[in-house]
Simulated scan of single mutants.
Amino acid sequence: MEFGFLLGDQPLSTPPEEHLDLLLRNVEAGQRAGFTHFTIGQHFLYSDFRWLQPIPILARLAAEIDDHVRIGTTVLVGPLQHPVQLAEDLATLDIITGGKLIVGLGTGYLEREYAAFDKPYSKRYGMLEEQIEILTALWTQDRVTFDGQFWQLDDVTTHVHPIQKPRPPIWLGAMKKVGVRRAARSGDVWTITPQQTVDEVAQLVQIYVEERRARGLPLNPFPLRRELQVADSYDDALRDFAAVARGKYVSYASQGMGLLDQERVEREFLANVADHVLLGTGAQVCDQIAAIADRIPIGPLLIRPHWPGMDAEQSARYLERVGREVVAPLKDLRAVGFDALVA
């Protein structure tokens, strides 16, 4: 089993240079702890917290990673960006990383971001599918013609191609059945969000697998996002998680993340998260991950090493403990294969 983590946001009160230093130190500590995937998400004009933009940040982090480590976006808000610029930026980033880039794309969930870019929020899913077609063409062809609903290209010459052939892997974010089917059609894998229970995920995995098999497309393990807290006991882990994560969950819910109920998050935080967060002692968390891997073909498992307000020392201690008590013990764990799933 491989492990990775999400490089995230910080309160606006954190100086930007301190925010960058935190990300760099997280990557350093993560590599020492055995993590092999480092990813970052994207928001625009966000409130309360600062998200540094993924492509320039990953270009900087590329100088810090070991040869066996991969970096990527989970996820870029694809429809807000013109596919030509996005294709060339990402191809350049793949070159900078030496062919270690993973391209995670999604539609996001904040309507105000679309308004700021003068993009139709109601058309975001169609825009994403069209964008992926254009990205693939620009990365794999010398000349491209495309006549779509949202973008048109007339026999244009391409000049920046990624190192990875035919292209970097595309991870597509999705939360519901329609989105999972879209991920099966258009990407290489579905990136599983952390707010869904294992039972919910298992049902969506079946939908994904059926769609891929119907189209004769290969099946690859699912990157699974999960929040994780290790402590000396389950109750301690639950308490520690609430202390660092409650504020961010409230922010997610208040800004419109559909999988979270704002009132319940604010009044009953622990009841709203305990069914989808990995919590307990190192041994208990290992057992929880093994149980998921026995049902779902996962890999890598992506966690969050810090929450807004934590400093670099806190994150480093967290990563060291998770590396010692979870990553190292599970290095030989193999998830269930697709042949074990219902055809």
Results as ranks from 00 to 15, higher is better:
D147I: 01
G4S: 05
P11I: 00
A293Q: 00
H19C: 07
L6T: 09
E17Q: 15
I292H: 00
E211F: 05
E17L: 15
L224T: 05
R124Y: 00
K119M: 11
D142P: 04
A29Y: 00
P11H: 03
Q195Y: 15
V69P: 04
F338K: 02
G34T: 01
H159G: 11
V273N: 05
Y114S: 04
Q255S: 15
A115Y: 03
A283P: 08
E113L: 10
E268C: 06
L101A: 03
T73H: 09
R124A: 04
T14F: 07
I207G: 10
E2P: 04
H306Q: 12
R264S: 11
G106E: 08
Q131C: 13
E2A: 12
E313T: 13
A137L: 13
Q53D: 09
D311N: 13
V326I: 10
R226A: 08
G299F: 04
H19S: 07
V250H: 12
L80F: 02
D287C: 07
Q206I: 04
R181S: 10
A316M: 03
L90N: 09
P308F: 07
A87Q: 03
I163V: 15
W190A: 08
D118G: 11
E129Q: 15
V144Y: 08
R321F: 04
G187H: 07
P308T: 05
P168M: 02
F38W: 05
V103D: 00
I163N: 07
L22D: 00
R60I: 08
R267W: 03
Q288K: 11
V156R: 11
L110F: 13
L224S: 03
P11N: 00
I170D: 02
Q229A: 14
D9I: 15
P166W: 02
L330G: 10
L319K: 01
L110A: 11
L61E: 02
A202G: 03
F38D: 01
I55S: 07
V336D: 00
G4F: 10
I303N: 02
L20P: 05
L172R: 01
E130I: 02
V27N: 05
G309E: 05
Q262R: 15
D261L: 06
G247K: 12
L153Q: 10
Q206E: 13
F269Q: 03
L217I: 07
I95G: 07
T191P: 05
R182W: 01
L52Y: 12
V189W: 01
A62Y: 10
V144L: 06
D199H: 04
E113Q: 12
E211S: 04
Q10R: 13
K165G: 08
Y249P: 06
L101Q: 01
D9F: 15
E320C: 02
G126R: 09
L93H: 01
Q195K: 12
Q131H: 14
T73Y: 09
S13M: 07
